[in-house]
Design a protein around this nucleic acid. Structure first.
Lengths: 218, 218
DNA sequence: ACCTGAACACCGTTCAAGT
DNA sequence: ACCTGAACACCGTTCAAGT
């Protein structure tokens, strides 16, 4: 039994390893460490130097793999967008042939993702990263997720269970609502505004059902 | 004519003034300068030292009026919440007796406020400030705005134009939707996802109408 | 190629000292 | 009371230098 390999494998996901001079995986390790540090504190207090320290590398080493701090942040955001797309895709697979169930499941997964990675989501949608085409990888997955949403609605329309309003508008309304609900959850604003203790899952279900009422045909 | 007063008054809102040793208004001037600097760049690059420099005061002077940087940020957020509440109140006054029109107007004003003060809104809802009762002033106005929203719905129900679902749930759905739509606007995500050029006002109207369909009685 | 250490211009925050 | 300057431990970023 190779003790070095064993040590690496037994790490809890902390991306630690016995570090050779060229460990080669620095790019991935930076993203991994940064993601952890980001969720532990917040966006403002994430420092490139702390990331380097966590991996056990000099504070200038990350510059081999990322142009600057912003570019590292963009890398984390990209991972988040990919994860969101995956979640929606899984929701669609799970309830194939039932658009309403697909939307409900996708909504739950979206909310769950936001609650589990609040700081990452703030990074994705918080206007810290530039909106232009500086990081094309970012918007591609967001785009993909929206397309999938539209496909669900299209199927619902052709099955006659959704009204035939403009697809893009219906998709936008659903996305906005679940997006807003998620962000209100993590902002803490709901704890004060809503009288009862905030119970994420049933609240998400209720909101979605109310929305679907507005989309129903007839 | 007193040239000193004239100079102060003719400032475009930049909060500049000929500075006596005790200018007394430092608290307000800090908030004002910070708000400007915040919108000019973003939250991460707002520095207490830059704020002090903009007012023409030593970099430790703000500590007389704010415990730390976070407490200054909380002050800015509080102003934002108060402004949001005011906007909704004005929307209610403007269309008294017509709950649907009140909701539409409030939505437009909410979106407008977010678009004009994106960084401030990120501060208000971005999870940078602690959610607990460290800054009680913050949640009080948010609370007030939500109450007003519920009153609109209540009136609509008693007039028989809204369905009699749970008021809090209906209010939450509306708030989430408009909140989410606003944040998607400023995040730039829509520019990529939506095919047509994003036109804020008509899009907000369309989304609200779709939502109101779901809230209608009958 | 990949990594390091010194250096620079910035931060937030504290504290003794000045008016 | 209100403000200042020096000091401390942090930042991001650059660059010559090392393996």
């Amino acid at each position: 039994m190779n003790s070095q390999t064993a040590t690496t494998k037994s790490e809890p996901a902390g991306c630690l390893s016995t570090k050779p001079y060229h460990h080669g995986d620095l790019h991935h390790q930076c993203l991994c460490a940064a993601r952890q540090l980001l969720e532990e504190n917040n966006i403002a207090s994430l420092s490139l130097r702390a990331v380097a320290k966590k991996i056990g590398v000099s504070h200038t080493a990350p510059y081999r793999h990322f142009k600057d701090k912003e570019s590292l942040l963009a890398g984390i955001a990209a991972i988040g967008f990919r994860e969101l797309t995956t979640q929606i895709a899984q929701a669609v697979e799970m309830h194939s042939g039932d658009p309403a169930a697909q939307l409900l499941e996708a909504g739950h997964r979206y909310v769950q993702m936001v609650i589990e990675n609040p700081q990452c989501v703030q990074l994705m949608f918080g206007g810290i990263l530039p909106c232009d085409d500086t990081y094309p990888e970012l918007r591609e997955s967001g785009d993909l997720a929206f397309d999938r949403l539209k496909m669900i609605i299209e199927e619902g329309q052709s099955m006659g269970i959704f009204k035939k309003a403009e697809i893009e508008l219906m998709a936008l309304t659903l996305w906005s609502s679940i997006h807003g609900l998620s962000l209100l959850f993590i902002s803490g604003s709901l704890d004060e505004a809503v009288a009862a203790p905030v119970d994420v899952h049933p609240l998400t279900t209720a909101v979605t059902h109310l929305l679907l009422d507005g989309l129903k045909s007839g």
